[in-house]
Amino acid sequence: MKVYISAIITSKPEFQDEVREALMDLVKATQQEEACILYDLHQDIDDGNRFLFYEIWEDQEGLDKHNQMPHIKTFQAFSQGKLQVPVMVYKAMKI
């Protein structure tokens, strides 16, 4: 069963450019993953500090592998102290 993810990342204003660059690096690496169907990054028009990922994964196993990938771990370490709030992740199924 496919897994649909919406993730919201909100940077502190002074780190907006750094966070955006790091997220764009995540896109490049993640789109190479076998279970990745879609991994799109968006930036809020009204609040440039807010970024939204829309993701589709082949299955939960593929998503679990993604969450253990080095590029994810690198972003998690990098983002410490650079985000306004913890990353918000919403996992859904298509109906």
Rank of each mutant, 00 (worst) to 15 (best):
F51Y: 11
Q32E: 14
D44V: 00
K28Q: 10
S6Y: 10
K12Q: 13
A22N: 08
Q76F: 06
M69H: 11
I72H: 02
V27A: 11
I45P: 00
E34M: 07
T74F: 02
M69I: 00
S11P: 02
A22I: 00
S11F: 08
C36S: 15
I37T: 01
F51S: 02
E18F: 01
V19L: 01
V19M: 07
Q68V: 03
D47K: 05
L41E: 04
K73M: 05
E58G: 03
H66L: 07
F53I: 00
Y39G: 07
L41Y: 10
N67C: 05
W57N: 04
K28R: 13
E55P: 10
Q68I: 05
S6K: 08
H71R: 04
V19D: 00
H71L: 03
E61R: 13
D44P: 07
K12W: 02
K28D: 00
S11A: 15
D17G: 03
E34R: 11
E14V: 02
E14L: 06
L63K: 06
F75V: 01
I37P: 09
I37S: 00
I45C: 11
D44K: 02
D40R: 13
Q32G: 09
H42G: 08
E55I: 01
A77V: 14
D44N: 15
E55V: 06
N67I: 09
G62Y: 07
E21L: 08
D59R: 09
T10L: 03
Y54P: 03
R20V: 03
L52Q: 10
V19Q: 00
G62S: 11
T30P: 09
I8S: 04
D44T: 06
G48Q: 14
K73P: 01
D40E: 15
I72K: 03
V27Y: 04
H66C: 09
P13S: 01
E18Q: 15
D46T: 10
P70T: 04
I45H: 13
P70S: 01
E14M: 04
T10D: 06
Q16G: 01
F53P: 08
V19H: 08
R20Q: 15
E61L: 11
H71N: 09
Y39P: 10
H66V: 01
N49D: 12
F53A: 07
D17I: 12
K28H: 11
D59K: 09
A77H: 12
I8N: 06
Q16E: 13
M69K: 14
A22M: 12
Q31D: 02
A29P: 08
L23R: 02
Q60G: 04
L38K: 15
I45E: 14
D40T: 10
L63F: 14
E34T: 12
T74Y: 10
G48F: 11
A7Q: 04
F75Y: 11
S11N: 06
N49T: 12
G62A: 12
W57R: 05
E14A: 00
E55H: 02
D64H: 08
D25C: 09
F53L: 05
Q68F: 08
E33D: 13
A35T: 02
L63D: 00
S6A: 13
H42T: 02
W57Q: 05
K12L: 15
D64G: 06
D40H: 11
K12H: 04
P13G: 05
I8M: 08
T74R: 15
E21C: 02
A7M: 06
Q43S: 09
L63E: 04
S6Q: 12
E18H: 05
D47V: 07
P70M: 00
F53M: 05
R50E: 13
I72T: 10
D25L: 08
I8L: 10
R20H: 12
P70V: 05
